[in-house]
Amino acid sequence: MTPITEVAGRRITLSNLGKVIHPATGTTKGELMHYYATVEAAILPHLRDRPVSFLRYPDGPGGQLFFTKNPPPGTPAWVATTPVPRTEDPRARQVMVQDLPSLVWASNLVVEFHTPQWTASSPAVADRLVLDLDPGPPATVVDCCRIALHLRERLAADGLTAFAKTSGAKGLHLLVPVVPTPSGQVSAYAKRLAVEAEAELPRLVTHRMTKALRAGKVFVDHSQNAAAKTTATPYTLRARERPTVSAPVTWEEVEACADPADLAFVMDDIAPRLERYGELLGPLFDAGRAGDVP
């Protein structure tokens, strides 16, 4: 019999709760869903009012992975959707995860959450800038931390405040609250930062995606500021053998990082971190912290 639960007055059909999703730790789908419910207060502000894209991995990271922007078949009528500007389909809509029932419903699909840098009310007008620091082996997140500190100072010189989170994979993301600005302008500025970083640290940084240029360097990916692009949402689980999380970190942790394990967090780490540090990315929602994009 398929279990049905009620969350805040919404009936949600659940499935395969005992299925192992993250094989390295034996983490089940039910445990994954419990994680999302536990971090509801932290993750929902990052999802709310933004069109959400899902990377689905219902059979675990070793199974089929598929990225979807359209509302999945069977999406309940009470799950909010929003029109989105897509040139290939002017009628396109995407899901918005606005509340706990929507979060539980989406987590039952087994997903990574990915969101753009703009809200549904202002398509292609960014309220944050993102720089994705991706290490090319043998570089690691330790090298990303060095570049993150450099970029934090560079952003500060322009009156912008950076916050850091792990990607949940190999690298780091820098998030910067900005006064609402057309995505094209934010993208151009982010690219200038990446190009400058490569010019100043040519042995450590590349701003180009070409894999042949990335060995032993940190790729400063500026492209996720484009209106059509998305970034892994803070607190999302990732489709990995272990249930790794894109987790906010302190700048003290970035400065002290000496081993990749220092900044590798799984879902069981997050509740204690929230208790210890609070929501490190809370300032992203403070209009007073947003800066003007040069």
Rank of each mutant, 00 (worst) to 15 (best):
S246Q: 04
Q185S: 14
E255T: 14
T210K: 05
A80M: 10
L32Q: 13
A77P: 03
A77C: 01
S183A: 15
L160Y: 01
R203I: 00
L100F: 01
N225G: 06
A227T: 03
L17P: 09
A261Q: 15
P180S: 10
L155I: 07
G168I: 07
H207W: 14
S187P: 00
W118G: 06
L14M: 15
N70I: 08
R93K: 15
L109C: 11
P51V: 12
M209L: 12
K165D: 03
H22E: 08
R276F: 01
V104E: 04
L14T: 04
P3K: 00
R86C: 08
G30W: 11
L109E: 15
R11S: 05
R91G: 12
W251D: 06
V195R: 12
T230K: 02
L284K: 02
G30A: 11
V39C: 08
S122M: 08
S246I: 06
R192V: 10
E279G: 04
M1V: 05
D286M: 01
A156D: 08
P72A: 10
E196R: 14
M209K: 07
A264K: 13
L174C: 06
A215S: 09
L103G: 04
V142I: 07
K217Q: 00
R214V: 00
R203T: 07
L55F: 10
N16R: 15
C145W: 08
S121K: 07
P177H: 01
T206C: 05
A190D: 04
V205D: 05
E241W: 11
V266P: 02
G136P: 00
V125L: 06
L174S: 04
V220T: 05
L44V: 11
P76W: 03
A120C: 07
E88I: 14
L284N: 03
A37N: 09
L280T: 02
S107A: 15
R146A: 15
P101R: 03
N108P: 01
A157P: 01
C257F: 02
G184Y: 05
A212S: 11
A41F: 02
A290V: 01
T82K: 09
P3R: 02
A261T: 11
H46P: 08
V79G: 09
S102M: 05
V52H: 09
A227K: 06
H207M: 02
A162E: 03
Y36M: 11
A227G: 12
L201R: 13
D269P: 06
S223P: 00
R276K: 13
V52G: 10
P101C: 05
F163Q: 03
D268W: 15
H46C: 06
T2I: 09
L204N: 00
A42P: 03
V52I: 13
D143M: 01
F66C: 11
D99S: 10
L133G: 10
L17A: 13
P83V: 08
K211V: 08
T181H: 04
F66Q: 12
E6A: 00
T181M: 05
D259C: 08
P23S: 13
R208E: 15
K69S: 13
F285Y: 00
L47Q: 11
P283R: 01
D49P: 00
P85L: 09
W251P: 05
E252Y: 02
S246Y: 06
S187D: 09
A261H: 11
D89F: 12
N108M: 03
G74W: 04
A41S: 14
T233N: 13
R48H: 14
H34E: 15
E253P: 02
T115A: 13
D286F: 00
T230F: 04
P58K: 12
M267C: 12
K229M: 14
A256D: 09
